[in-house]
């Protein structure tokens, strides 16, 4: 699932040479990540007889699907040479709205929260492009603002969805065949995210702007519109994750999504997308998120203490990025 193969060609001849080298690096990193995931799964299977169980695999995937969806949006932003720290709080906004508006049907618990989340993403994009704020600062402000919105709306307490609509229960806890619904939503988002990035002009422009903003501008790309779009996409993804979280728990938790931004960024980086922009893929991020999720699962199954788990997670995130740096130098 490596994509974005020729996106940078638009950015002009000289940029293309360096970009094609970049993509080569990305394939190498993605390749080594697939290998890492395979090794992880093999280790898991050998350490615990319960690991390669369909229920377990789908439980893990379901548990990580919300962060996973956020990470897809984050991939767009980081590819575009941005960063979005506000996603965790936007997940919270959507989660609490979804619970608070559940009585108004699908319009209330799905459409309104997701659209509102997209609006907050638009806010990020406008702050960055119109006021020329650095993405880090703009989204940091949004992160605090949006969490404030959650607390104001909920007065700081969880909103319990009494008599949750059956569609909500199905989305959160239902199955299609053996596959839990949140996993299906995650898969769909990943698929759409990958196709848009790989096969649309917009997607290629995301790469081009991230690789070289000036070159992209000179080649006629509407850079600002492109930048705004990625933050809207990131907001929409966070909104979707938020309503899934509420559907799963049938409770809107004011702390929902806290620190999601860090897991999403970690997954994106492990997946081979770099902070330099222009290099990376949705497929890589999906592998990154799976590495993180299965690692936690295996450590739980074999009974590693929770504190030790954090230590290992930190080491592995750094290790993954170091490995991809080393591959980069060799290619």
């Amino acid at each position: 699932m490596a994509d974005g193969s020729s996106g940078e060609m638009i950015a002009g001849g000289s940029a293309w040479l360096t970009s094609s080298r970049r993509m080569l690096v990305h394939y190498a990193v993605t390749g080594s990540n697939i290998l890492a995931l395979a090794i992880l799964l093999a280790v898991g299977a050998s350490l615990s007889p319960y690991f390669l169980d369909v229920t377990n695999i789908f439980n893990v995937m379901r548990g990580t699907s919300m962060v996973g969806i956020v990470a897809i949006g984050m991939t767009y932003v980081i590819l575009n040479r941005g960063i979005d720290l506000s996603v965790g709080s936007i997940v919270g906004v959507a989660a609490i709205l979804s619970a608070g508006l559940a009585e108004y049907g699908v319009l209330g618990w799905v459409i309104a929260p997701v659209l509102f989340a997209g609006l907050l993403g638009l806010g990020n994009g406008l702050l960055i492009t119109q006021l020329k704020l650095q993405p880090f600062i703009a989204t940091l402000g949004m992160m605090i603002f949006a969490r404030g919105l959650v607390y104001v709306y909920s007065d700081g307490s969880p909103i319990v969805v009494s008599d949750a609509p059956s569609a909500m229960r199905f989305l959160g806890s239902g199955y299609l065949g053996p596959v839990p619904m949140p996993v299906i939503v995650f898969a769909l988002v990943a698929l759409i995210g990958a196709v848009v990035l790989k096969s649309t002009i917009f997607g290629r422009e995301v790469y081009a702007v991230g690789a070289n903003e000036e070159a992209a501008r000179l080649s006629g790309i509407h850079v600002q519109r492109n930048q705004i779009s990625v933050y809207v996409i990131s907001g929409l993804c966070a909104g979707l994750a938020g309503i899934l979280l509420t559907a799963r728990l049938t409770v809107g938790d004011p702390n929902a999504g806290t620190l999601f931004e860090l897991d999403a960024i970690a997954a994106t980086l492990i997946g081979g997308t770099t902070f330099d922009g222009g290099v990376g893929s949705v497929g890589g991020t999906v592998i990154g998120i799976m590495i993180l999720a299965f690692l936690a699962n295996i450590l739980n199954l074999v009974g590693v203490s929770p504190y030790m788990q954090m230590l290992l997670k930190g080491v592995i995130i750094v290790l993954a990025v170091v490995v991809s740096e080393l591959r980069k130098r060799r290619v």
Binding site: N56, V60, G63, R248, A296, N300, L301, V302, G303
Partner: peptide
């Protein structure tokens, strides 16, 4: 709550 749910799923599995 969500973290406890995930963690407990693993425990039930193990």
């Amino acid at each position: 709550r969500a973290k406890a749910l995930r963690g407990m799923e693993d425990m039930l599995q193990a």
